[in-house]
């Protein structure tokens, strides 16, 4: 089990088993554990379906302008002619047609299909980048706490406790509002500012969840034989940290990052729903839902953005679950 020292290049793939549980699994000789994980994942049809949807969503978000160009109208373009001028609701109830695949919004007749498609961009972009931020902070803090122990561990662990004690959503709403006043200082405005703010707020509040897990993993890794071996061979702190411990953390980071993305999608949607997310006229799923509530007699308006959130979150959850099961031999599926 001292493989990593001999074959540093393959460290990540070589030790996934050590990783999630931190306890010995039964290693099958002759086949890399990464390969085993891949084989497991391939057999998990549900997880693969999740992965498929995730890829599809990423493609939709990336090529939103093209898709909307083919099947829809510009997302902010008004189509007043689609609206009943007295009740402000779409003519014929929803306005769903070959022209408007998901119908139109009440009041201004904007193409709901285009707005849902564009909403995917905001949602995924913020969820991904906020996750990256959480992972970076969480990993650094978690590794430091777990590896150095002592007072470093105490301080970081308390810090994580404090974060977990904060009424998250309330704080996030407040922070977005307060930080929004810094346009001048930050030199950015509009959507860019809001996107950065949301990434910061969401990512910043979620790091302790990753941090705790990484700390635990690091703690147990630190006591593992191969680390002892490396140490007895004269390896020093940084070497052990970067060559022995970090590579073994990649798998859990991957798993929890995948599972954090859907949480962040929901978080962003909640903030937009409460009116503190991305501002008009940019389309967001949460923002559309907030408006749809006021027009609850026009159900298609809440259905499409709501389902978009549901499908996205579900897909990431399915994929994340599958990934965890595949990488964790103790997993109970």
């Amino acid at each position: 089990m001292t493989a990593p020292l001999d074959a540093p290049g393959k460290a990540a793939e070589a030790e996934p088993e050590a990783v999630v549980a931190g306890v010995s699994g039964k290693a099958i000789q002759g086949r890399s554990l990464g390969q085993i994980a891949w084989l497991r994942l391939k057999r998990d049809k549900v997880a693969l379906a999740g992965a498929g949807v995730v890829v599809f969503l990423i493609l939709v978000a990336t090529f939103a302008p093209l898709i909307v160009g083919w099947f829809g109208h510009p997302p902010n373009e008004f189509h007043q002619e689609m609206i009943d001028p007295s009740t402000m609701t779409p003519k014929g109830g929803s306005g769903i047609s070959g022209e408007f695949l998901f119908g139109v919004e009440p009041l201004n007749g904007r193409d709901l299909f285009s707005r849902v498609v564009y909403g995917a961009r905001i949602s995924l972009l913020i969820a991904f980048l906020a996750t990256v931020l959480s992972v970076v902070i969480g990993t650094v803090m978690g590794v430091m706490a777990g590896y150095f122990g002592g007072w470093v561990d105490t301080v970081i662990s308390r810090l994580m406790d404090i974060f977990l004690a904060f009424p998250l959503l309330v704080f996030a709403i407040a922070l977005v509002g307060v930080l929004g006043q810094f346009e001048q200082q930050l030199g950015v405005q509009g959507d860019t500012l809001r996107i950065l703010l949301l990434i910061f707020v969401i990512g910043f509040f979620n790091w302790p969840y990753i941090g705790r897990i990484i700390r635990g993993q690091t703690l147990s890794l630190r006591e593992r034989e191969f680390v002892d071996a490396a140490r007895s061979l004269g390896a020093r702190g940084p070497y052990i940290l970067f060559r022995e411990i970090l590579p073994n953390l990649i798998a859990p980071i991957l798993v929890y990052a995948t599972l954090l993305i859907p949480t962040n999608v929901l978080f962003e949607a909640a903030l937009s729903f409460l009116g503190v997310g991305i501002q008009a006229p940019t389309a967001t799923w949460g923002g559309m839902l907030a408006q749809a509530v006021k027009f609850y007699t026009v159900p298609h308006f809440m259905f499409f953005p709501g389902m978009a959130i549901f499908i996205t979150v579900l897909a990431f959850n399915l994929f994340g679950d599958g990934l965890r099961d595949a990488l964790d031999p103790k997993s109970s599926r």
């Binding site: 402000m88 009041l107 027009f295 609850y296």
Partner: peptide, 9 residues
């Protein structure tokens, strides 16, 4: 807005 359609139509 939700009641508007109901009362006017």
């Amino acid at each position: 807005p939700a009641a508007l359609g109901r009362v006017l139509s």
